[in-house]
Computed example of a mutant assay.
Amino acid sequence: LFLMDNTSSHIPSTFFLIGIPGLEDGRLWTSIIFCVLYILTILGNSSITYIICTEKSLHGPMYFFLAMLAVNDLFLPSSTVPKTLEIFWRNNGRIDAFNCLTQMFFAHFLSVVESGILVAMAYDRYIAICSPLRYSSILTYTALKRIAASILIRAFIAVLPLPIMVGRLHYCGEDVVLHSYCEHGAVVIIMCGDTQVTGLYGFVVALFLASLDVLLIVFSYVMILRAVYKMVSQDARQKTTETCGSHVCVIIIIYSSAFLTFVTYAFGKSDVTYQAHIFLANAYILLPAFCNPIIYGVRTKPIRERVLKVVCHKQKMTKR
Rank of each mutant, 00 (worst) to 15 (best):
I33P: 09
V272M: 09
D124P: 01
I138K: 06
Y265H: 09
A155S: 12
L101N: 01
V272C: 10
N292H: 13
L28Y: 10
I11T: 07
C35V: 09
T14P: 03
V205N: 01
A120W: 02
G193P: 01
Q275N: 12
Y201C: 06
G185K: 03
M223A: 12
S257I: 15
G44L: 01
I33F: 13
R226C: 08
L215T: 14
A283L: 15
A70G: 00
F64D: 04
I190R: 02
N292K: 10
V113A: 09
V222H: 14
R94L: 03
R134K: 14
F106D: 00
T142F: 11
L160D: 00
V112C: 13
S211L: 09
R27Y: 07
S270Q: 07
A143T: 15
I190G: 04
T198Q: 03
I39L: 13
R154W: 11
F267S: 12
T142N: 11
I18L: 04
I48K: 01
N99P: 08
R304S: 10
D235S: 15
S256T: 15
I39S: 05
T198D: 01
E24L: 05
M4E: 10
G44I: 00
I251T: 13
V228D: 10
R299H: 10
P163F: 02
F106L: 11
M62G: 13
P161Y: 04
G26V: 12
A206V: 12
P82H: 04
A236W: 06
I253S: 13
K314D: 12
L162V: 14
A266E: 06
F98M: 08
I303R: 02
A148N: 14
Y201L: 05
G22R: 08
W29V: 10
T14C: 08
L74P: 01
N99C: 13
G60I: 05
P132Q: 13
S9Q: 13
A210P: 12
V112R: 02
P61H: 04
Y123D: 06
T80D: 08
I42H: 05
L58K: 08
I285F: 07
L144V: 05
A227E: 14
I164S: 03
L1I: 06
Y201M: 04
S9K: 10
D213S: 14
A122Y: 03
N99K: 08
V248A: 15
F109G: 02
L260P: 06
A266T: 10
Y229C: 14
S131I: 08
C100W: 00
L118D: 01
P293S: 03
V311F: 14
T300M: 11
A122C: 12
K145M: 11
L280V: 09
S256M: 15
C312N: 14
G22D: 04
G185N: 11
P82N: 06
V71L: 07
V71A: 07
K316L: 08
Y123T: 09
K239V: 05
K309I: 07
S150G: 09
D194A: 05
P82T: 03
L58N: 08
M68S: 02
M68I: 09
C100Q: 03
T102V: 10
Q275P: 03
K316A: 11
V119G: 00
L212Y: 15
L162C: 13
I127G: 01
N6T: 12
F98V: 07
T102Q: 11
Q238M: 14
N6G: 09
M121I: 11
Y274G: 00
M223I: 06
V71H: 00
S220M: 02
F34G: 03
T140P: 07
S79L: 02
A289N: 08
Y141V: 12
